[in-house]
Design a protein around this nucleic acid. Structure first.
Lengths: 165, 165
DNA sequence: GGGGAATTGTAATGTTATATCATTTCAGTC
DNA sequence: GACTGAAATGATATAACATTACAATTCCCC
């Protein structure tokens, strides 16, 4: 039985490292692909990576508005579209929000564990879930193009520490 | 290998039967539980069951407005909340829309196959997916409360018949 | 430095969902 | 049949999320 005990970031983990790592990967990937990670897109990616919680488009917009005059919804959504297309972020359907991808090198539909209490998100790439989904779809004669698997509950911290926000 | 070939309703199935069956079950369940399936709630359930495609809250509102003066968003959302609480419908997170539950007797989080082309939805209760999700969550120390599994792709009809809407 | 494509700016609007308070309806009781 | 508390609905406003449309700018390549 595998122990994915590291799916959730530790309480006091070095988040600066997460961000720097994510940004470096993004730079390198976009460079490789000839995709233009502009200043705006870079900044939006940083904002999404500001924590391990889903970030809403209008949260991003609020931050941008403080930094540059005249930021509007399309500014944000276009940047998000680019980042989604490059696989640098995921959209969490059940939250209408976005989270940084921990493995942007390869295209994938991950599974997400989302804490009801603290909103922290863990991204999984569980081959068992994948196989089960593919099998069930095949049995129904359905050809899979995209999978959204979002699990809500309590993360390890919030299970033990109580229901604090 | 199980053949869930009946997950999708056939092209020419007797949908009147689906609706009558769903409404009868709803009546009986609510009666059993002492829940009040009022005229409004019954009508909203019928509208959700008008087909096997997800129905948006404002689609429902449009229909209601034609039938009763003064229907407003809260009218619809309150009815939807009741129907969700009774397990008579599901919410499709990836569509911000609602679909009738095919097995309302027991509470469950189903899996959904949603056709990109014709929007038809098939509800699955695949124990394999369920087990895989539970296993992965347990491995991460996460306690599951709700699961949203929504698969987008092409249904059997649209795979063979082409991409028509 | 000119042409064309990609990116961003800007304004307006569309879509989905909730907060709040007033009113009506209903079941149970007297 | 009138009273009462709880549930349900009516009504108004607003919050939250997302897109359309067109103009202006920037960037890359030649």
């Amino acid at each position: 039985m595998p122990t994915d005990g590291d799916a959730f970031p530790g309480r006091g983990h070095d988040h600066g490292h997460c961000v720097r790592d994510a940004m470096a990967r993004a730079e390198s990937l976009c460079s490789l692909r000839g995709a233009r990670l502009t200043a705006l897109r870079r900044r939006v990616l940083e904002i999404v990576w500001s924590g391990h919680k889903p970030v809403g488009a209008y949260d991003i917009l609020d931050v941008l508005k403080r930094e540059r005059a005249g930021a509007q919804p399309p500014t944000v959504y276009r940047a998000l579209d680019f980042l989604l297309a490059q696989g640098l972020i995921h959209r969490l359907e059940s939250r209408n929000a976005y989270a940084g991808c921990i493995a942007p090198d390869t295209r994938h539909d991950s599974q997400f564990l989302i804490c009801r209490s603290c909103a922290t998100v863990a991204e999984l790439d569980d081959p068992g879930i994948d196989a089960a989904v593919r099998g069930a779809a095949a049995g129904a004669g359905f050809s899979v193009e995209h999978r959204a698997v979002e699990i809500e509950g309590l993360c390890p911290d919030c299970r033990t520490g109580g229901d604090h926000a």
